[in-house]
C-alpha cells in the first residue's frame, strides 16, 4: 500500500464523507418525522389517511432504495418534477426510512399494554394526557432497538447514492479506482470512512438500548 496515494486521496474522501453524513442525517431526520406521523395515523385508524399511509409503508418497505432513487431522479423529471441529486437523496432516504420507522414505532405503540392506558384513565388523566405522558413515551422506549437498527440500516443505505451521481464515499472510491487503478488504497479508505461513520452510531446505539431497557415500566 502506498501512503502517498492514501494521503493524496484523503481530502477527496473527507469531502465525500461530509456530504454522505449530511444527506444521511437529513434523510434520517425526515424519516423519523414521517415515521412518527405515519405511525400515529395508522395506529389511530384516521379514516382515508390511514389507508394512504398504510399503502405508503407497504410500497416503500417492499422496494429497494436504488429503484426508488432511479424513479425519483430519472423518472419524475419526465413527469415535470425535477429535483437536485442531493434533494432526491434526502427525499428517497426519508421515504424509505419513514416506512421502516413507522413500523418500528407502530409496533411499539401496539406493545404498550392496555393496563397502562386503563390505569392512567383510572388515575383521572385526560385521554390526550394518557397518550402524551404514558403511552407514547413507553412506546418510544419499546421501539428503541428497532429505531437504532433502522438508523444503522439507513446510514448504510446511503452507499447507493452514487447511482444518482452524488459525490459520496462510494462514488469517490469508484471514480478513483477507474481513474488511477489504485484499488487497494481506494478501498481501504472507503472501509475506514464507513467505520468512522458507523462504529460510533453502533456503539451509542447499544448504550441507548441498554438505558432504554432500564427505564422500562411495569416489568
Amino acid at each position: 500500500m502506498d501512503t502517498e496515494v492514501l494521503s493524496s486521496y484523503l481530502p477527496l474522501y473527507v469531502e465525500a464523507f461530509f456530504l454522505t453524513l449530511k444527506i444521511g442525517w437529513l434523510g434520517i431526520f425526515l424519516s423519523f418525522v414521517l415515521g412518527v406521523a405515519s405511525a400515529f395515523i395508522i395506529h389511530f385508524k384516521i379514516p382515508v389517511l390511514s389507508a394512504v399511509f398504510g399503502a405508503y409503508v407497504e410500497i416503500f418497505r417492499n422496494t429497494p432504495l436504488l429503484i426508488q432513487l432511479f424513479f425519483i431522479y430519472f423518472g419524475l423529471p419526465k413527469a415535470g418534477i425535477s429535483l437536485s441529486a442531493e434533494l432526491c437523496g434526502i427525499i428517497g432516504l426519508g421515504l424509505l426510512g419513514g416506512s421502516y420507522m413507522s413500523e418500528a414505532i407502530r409496533s411499539g405503540l401496539d406493545a404498550v399494554s392496555s393496563a397502562q392506558t386503563e390505569s392512567a384513565l383510572a388515575l383521572g388523566m385526560k385521554k390526550t394526557e394518557v397518550f402524551t405522558l404514558v403511552v407514547f413515551p413507553e412506546a418510544l422506549t419499546l421501539s428503541v432497538p428497532a429505531i437504532v437498527a433502522n438508523v444503522i440500516f439507513l446510514l448504510k443505505e446511503t452507499s447507493v447514492f452514487s447511482a444518482i451521481s452524488l459525490m459520496d464515499l462510494m462514488f469517490t472510491a469508484k471514480d478513483l479506482i477507474g481513474l488511477y487503478y489504485d484499488t487497494t488504497e481506494a478501498l481501504v479508505l472507503l472501509v475506514m470512512f464507513y467505520m468512522v461513520m458507523l462504529l460510533p452510531v453502533s456503539f451509542v446505539g447499544s448504550v441507548v438500548e441498554k438505558k432504554a431497557g432500564a427505564g422500562m415500566f411495569g416489568e
Partner: peptide, 19 residues
C-alpha cells in the same frame, strides 16, 4: 452490521482481483 453491502461487493469484486 456496519459495512454497507455495496462496500463489501466492491471489496470482493475489485479488491480480490487486485490483491
Amino acid at each position: 452490521r456496519i459495512m454497507p453491502q455495496l462496500v463489501l461487493l466492491f471489496i470482493v469484486y475489485f479488491g480480490a482481483t487486485k490483491v
